[in-house]
Write a protein that binds this DNA or RNA. Structure first.
Length: 468
RNA sequence: UCCUCCUUAGCUCAGUUGGUUAGAGCACCUGACUGUUAAUCAGGGGGUCGAAGGUUCAAGUCCUUCAGGGGGAGCCA
């Protein structure tokens, strides 16, 4: 008999299957009943909803039924019928049950009741079987698919940048070293330092902190590319918004200026949010009900809003005005300093009440590769600031002038000996170009309404966190 | 990394100015119930109070250190 997914039975027109025998397989969420009849809520992961299996106790061996507990895996052959009870349209009257795997009820950690996110992190290998994490994983898949679709439809090429790199040009913080050297007895040079020429790659290597620099090589050859892959930061940052291993989306486009860049950033995020609303309805409704009551409203408001373009200088003026009107911030505000989270939140949540794309930052608080403006003070960097989660995108127009770029590198004393290939993009056929980076899990935080970034990736990697 | 709060049953939490045998709800087990929706009702088992020291006649409760976790901050995506 053909095995049918529960999503198919609950979401398709199955009138033709009524009163026929079907086969379903999945994991038991709950079993309840009386001495005549038992009800099993069966979930196979294809959809958040459970299929109700009805068991006439007279037809089954009591020893078998006893083993069908929360968490057990079973297959059921049975007649599909319109449900007698409320709460579901169809249900299956069991005719034969196959027990694939028991789940001892005294030791199986997941209960019918809800669990705290903190507890579920301790059983990361099993939490995927909960409603919340099932919803998260299905949405995560849909978002990945949406991202590929968005760029593919617009002529971007999916461009694969290396995970192992020999350069840390962004200075984006601590990196994880990649080495086959025996660290208890490393080969040494005459001056006592470790001789990486004898290491696997013949030089010191790390896991990448960004695919941007290689992405620029792609954009200056293919026109429009995007990367979508894992990224690594060895920073010991212990917050609900940081991971040591996270997925990043980094488009890079030749011949894009600041206006085209911010337009793409806005269009991209709205596309993803709309995709979620269109394709993850059941999961989002569940999360809206169980995790974050304001979720659906917030998602819809982002689609409808026109993102504010806010020059940094104007942002500072608004914040100084707020202070003059009596608003208290913990940290001072002045032109030239980076904004603290509280300042960004004020602008997004209090002042404008919609997403803000801040542009033209002081050059001293942004990376060396950002395009310098004619004022000599600012660069064409952009941050997309979102309600609740803060910075979701960081991007910029890149400095395409070889002389200006090298001058800035020398000014900041950035070691570029391993970066000669990057400078060649400006030496040979340089072009105006721009790009941005979006933290995929930050997007997931916004889409799902989850509070902690460790709960929007199946197996989070963070400081002291690598058990599962 | 800094600030702050927390750690008591499988889970979520009570536990008074330090004072007999550490409690509840849920979960689990047993039983009842003619179709349940995280079913309901009755009963039962279950704890080295995060770890190590210390103060005290007496510590779940006070002190110190460590570990783990939450929230906030910095860094960023």
């Amino acid at each position: 008999m053909e095995h049918l997914e529960i999503k198919y039975l609950l979401k398709s027109n199955v009138d033709a299957l009524i009163d026929t025998t079907v086969n379903v397989k999945g994991w038991v969420r709950t079993k309840r009943g009386n001495k005549n009849v038992a009800f099993i809520a069966l979930n196979d992961g294809s959809i958040i909803h459970n299929l109700q299996i009805v068991i006439d106790l007279a037809n089954f061996d009591e020893a078998l039924l006893k083993k069908i507990t929360t968490g057990a895996c079973i297959g059921v052959d049975g007649k599909l019928v319109k449900s007698q009870g409320q709460g579901q349209v169809v249900e299956v009257l069991a005719e034969a049950i196959t027990l694939y795997g028991e789940a001892d009820s005294e030791t199986y950690p997941l209960q019918k009741k809800g669990h705290s996110m903190e507890f579920l992190r301790e059983i990361g290998h099993l939490r995927l079987r909960t409603n919340t994490f099932g919803a998260m994983c299905r949405i995560r898949h849909q978002m990945a698919y949406a991202i590929h679709t968005f760029f593919h439809e617009r002529g971007f090429f999916y461009f694969h940048t290396p995970l192992i790199t020999a350069s840390d040009c962004e200075g984006a913080g601590e990196m994880f070293q990649v080495s086959t050297i025996d660290y208890t007895n490393p080969p040494r040079k005459e001056d006592g330092s470790i001789d990486y020429e004898q290491d696997f790659f013949g030089k010191q290597t790390s896991l990448t902190v960004s695919g941007q620099l290689e992405g620029e090589l792609g954009a200056t050859a293919l026109g429009k590319i995007y990367t979508f892959g894992p990224t690594f930061r060895a920073e010991n940052s212990n917050t609900p918004r940081h991971l040591a291993e996270f997925w990043m989306v980094e488009p890079e486009m030749a011949f894009y200026d600041l206006d085209k860049l911010t337009a793409l950033e806005e269009e991209f995020i709205k596309y993803c949010v709309r995709w979620a609303l269109d394709n993850c309805t059941d999961d989002l409704e569940f999360l809206n009900k169980m995790v974050d009551n304001g979720l659906l409203e917030r998602l819809r408001s982002v689609i409808d809003a026109e993102f504010v373009r806010l020059p940094y200088t104007e942002g500072i003026r608004i914040l100084e005005e707020a202070i003059a009107n009596g608003h208290k911030f913990e940290f001072p505000v002045s032109w030239g300093t980076d904004l603290a989270s509280e300042h960004e939140r004020y602008l997004v949540e209090t002042h404008f009440k919609k997403p803000v794309i801040m542009v033209n930052y002081p050059k001293d608080i942004k990376a060396f590769y950002m395009k310098q403006n004619d004022d000599g003070k600012t660069v064409q960097g952009t941050d997309v600031l979102f309600p609740k989660i803060g910075e979701i995108i960081g991007g910029s127009v890149r400095e395409e002038s070889y002389d200006k770029l090298v001058a800035r590198i020398n000014e900041l004393e950035i070691p570029m000996k391993d970066m000669w290939w990057y400078l060649d993009t400006r030496r040979f056929g340089t072009c105006p170009h721009a790009g941005f980076g979006l933290g995929f899990e930050r997007l997931m935080l916004f889409i799902t309404g989850m509070a902690n970034i460790r709960d929007v990736i199946p197996f989070p990697r963070a400081s002291k966190t690598a058990e599962f």
